[in-house]
Amino acid sequence: MKVTLNIWRQPKRDAQGKMESYELDGLSEHMSFLEMLDVLNERLTSEGRDPVAFDSDCREGICGMCGLVINGEAHGPSPTTTCQLHLRSFSDGDVIDVEPWRAEPFPVLKDLIVDRTSFDRIIQAGGYISANTGSAPEANAAPIAQADASDAFDAATCIGCGACVAACPNGSAMLFTAAKVTHLGLLPQGQPERNSRALDMVNQHDEEGFGNCTNIGECTAVCPKGIPLETISRLNRDLLKAATRTDG
């Protein structure tokens, strides 16, 4: 099959970028979207032109490294990561727009690569349970209801790809932040730091310059792991409780 790609090209951070057009022919519908970009890069290289820089690593939908806005949608038309998108989701002759994640806290580093270290800093702020190695009690000492463990798991499947931010009209990272607050907040081990976690993570989220949540759910629509919007409500509850408590 044949497609025309309009790809965002930007030589480096803070440089002016623009969309450039490339035509590719002889593609297989079984090719993944990123393999198509590999093919494009092979061609560009042989023509002596700078290949397109894009992030990807595991290419099986779990590491969260890849992420492109394809035809205006984060991760493109199918509800998976970009690496799991195949050309059979497109038609012969399609014109496909490819852009990077866009948000101020995700500056473009080159072409389609963005800097997502802001996510790491949100986790640093409190996205953990403080349990030094060696200090753990026996694993079966505290049973956890299967339902809680399962809900915690649903939230814990977040891969930190940033599609939620890319899709959110407000550029909010609430779904990412809330997934972690929910994961740890549902487990008994997570209770001692539940208040401080919500406070510190939300403060860091705001500090990074992410927007606010308006509960419209664009994030969950593109989330490859289907993190539910309920996590944000849980975060709100934890945060409001922690922010208004008077016992310190």
């Binding site: 035809n71 205006g72 727009d97 852009e99 866009r102 009209p169 419209i216 759910g217 664009e218 629509a221």
Partner: peptide, 21 residues
């Protein structure tokens, strides 16, 4: 501040009302 003032995504295929909102 988070999304900038200009056009965020250039693709004309992007739906103004988003995916599912």
């Amino acid at each position: 501040g988070a999304t900038g003032t200009g056009k965020r995504y250039l693709s004309s295929k992007r739906k103004a009302t988003g995916n599912q909102m």
